[in-house]
């Protein structure tokens, strides 16, 4: 009787072992992913597809050292944001400057001011010490900067999903009521040798928080 029952069991196990060969596991990201060996500037130059317009603008306004300032945080706008800005700045194609170098000095100075809106000179802002409550700091162009996290849903459970960072700058002059224009951060906490870099969303954010 025993022999018979054991025979049945081994048939069962033999045939049914669920082979999980169907799941091609690529594994997890190691936690060193967020570290970049090099300065913030070299990080931007290492990804031309996203930042080559930005790096040229920085160089033209020779703001490298502000960007590479020790212990600073840099919110990098992508090329598409600057592209949309230029479309707005020069609506009709005829008299749009052919190259960045051909941008008149006045406009270039204004763009330098915008670049400094993205630099937090003396503070390392990282995701871990932010929360859904606003926290504040000042930009290089001493405008008020505001940071907060927004949580998404997870499978229909409200506010239990991933959290992403929002970076907003107050555009109104000091005395008037504040108006913060927000931008979502799509790559957070890139630690370079000179500070921290966050990359802003490209399709809905226009360079200079227009």
């Amino acid at each position: 009787m025993k022999l018979f029952l054991s025979l049945c069991c081994c048939i069962g196990i033999l045939l049914s072992g669920c082979d999980d060969a169907y799941y091609n596991d690529g594994g997890l990201l190691d936690n060193q992913i967020g570290v970049y060996e090099g300065t913030t500037m070299s990080y931007l130059e290492s990804q031309p597809a996203l930042f080559d317009t930005l790096t040229t603008l920085i160089k033209l306004n020779n703001m490298e050292e502000e960007v590479n300032r020790k212990g600073s945080t840099f919110f990098a706008p992508q090329n598409y944001s600057i592209y949309n800005y230029l479309l707005l700045k020069y609506p009709d194609p005829e008299n749009r400057p052919k190259t960045l170098e051909a941008i008149p000095a006045g406009d270039m100075a204004e763009m330098a001011g915008y670049i400094s809106d993205y630099i937090i000179p003396n503070e390392q802002i990282v995701r871990s010490d932010l929360s859904t409550v606003y926290s504040y700091s000042t930009t290089l162009s001493d405008k008020k900067a505001r940071f907060n996290l927004v949580r998404e849903d997870y499978l229909g459970n409200i506010n239990m999903g991933a959290a992403y960072m929002i970076y907003s700058v107050n555009l109104n002059p000091p005395a008037t009521p504040e108006f913060y224009s927000p931008a979502k951060v799509v790559v957070t906490d890139v630690a370079t040798t000179t500070g921290t870099v966050h990359v802003l969303i490209s399709d809905t954010h226009i360079f200079g928080f227009n």
Binding site: N84, V150, S181, I206
Partner: peptide, 22 residues
């Protein structure tokens, strides 16, 4: 005012054209 979280009612500015181009 698009800065608030998506799960609350967002306030409306009184100047209709206060926001950006898009």
């Amino acid at each position: 005012d698009f800065s608030g979280s998506a799960s609350e009612l967002r306030p409306i500015f009184d100047d209709p054209l206060q926001n950006g181009e898009r």
